[in-house]
Write a protein that binds this DNA or RNA. Structure first.
Lengths: 145, 145
DNA sequence: TTAATTAGTTAGATGATCTAACTAATTGGT
DNA sequence: ACCAATTAGTTAGATCATCTAACTAATTAA
């Protein structure tokens, strides 16, 4: 039980290094690649991006400018609330990114195949609940400012 | 099985946001907090830090300078290989960081208590193997330049 | 209909990281 | 043993992602 903490630290660090490597291969900043990962098909508002990334609004504007210039995303005004800007990924560009992820997905699928249904359920449950705990604890840290 | 990928993405993003919040509370750069997390008791060489963090040697020098000035770490020359510099965390400073982590650790312990031994073993196995897969895939991405 | 709030952008400043060049220590081939 | 090549870390200068503060425009509430 004590060797659990370094385990999750290593896990998170490796995940980050992997995504950094993907970003480098694409010639993108790690932040930009992270956003593109979030933008699957759905559109996301600039403000939601700021929350998700932990960035200021100005930083998001700069980031979307970069991605727009490179042709990765487009801006659309929200019809209902015209203050809002919705960011949409360009499908053709997303495809080129997904190609890079194929190796990881294949390896992960192969690994996950070793688990039976109950075990897989446990893993999903663990990830879901840990995510929730992290969100709560992050909020609590922010409170005391 | 299809909703697994967004799950791990959310997990990693939340983990990062949590650590960003910790760093902000300490008045440190996220990178610096990440290094301090790695430096438990053990000493780590500057080069190993560069690998672990995905930074250049110059960036590590600057980072260690920052942490040294603030009293978080000390530099020691390696006796065996005097080119090497070993970085050591200052225990008293580490304690103040651990205090911030208490809330998370308590919440995680409470959550993990819901799993029986077999389930916990599955979670540890999953984290261990996924970490290994990520390391392999990162290396493969780096190969093609 | 006017005041207050919210979403996003612009402008300018800061600073973490980068590249390239350098010092110093170690290793290996001859 | 010795010189060349490699490795570890640092220094100097440049770049650029992000920050703060001030601004525009749209929405909501009094």
């Amino acid at each position: 039980m004590e060797h659990y903490v370094p385990l999750i630290r290593e896990f998170a660090a490796r995940d980050e290094l992997f995504h950094d490597a993907v970003a480098r291969k694409l010639g993108l900043h790690p932040t930009d690649e992270k956003v593109l990962r979030l933008l699957g098909q759905q559109t996301v508002s600039a403000g939601d991006l700021a929350d998700y990334m932990g960035l200021t609004g100005a930083a998001v504007t700069a980031m979307v400018d970069r991605l727009e210039t490179l042709g990765y995303v487009t801006r659309e005004r929200d019809g209902a609330d015209r203050r809002r800007v919705k960011i949409r990924a360009v499908p053709a560009k997303l495809a080129s990114i997904n190609r890079i992820y194929r190796g990881l997905h294949a390896a992960m699928d192969a690994m996950l195949a070793d688990y039976n249904e109950a075990e897989f359920k446990t893993v999903v449950d663990y990830l879901t609940r840990t995510t929730k705990v992290l969100a709560e604890q992050t909020r609590k840290l922010g409170d005391g400012n």
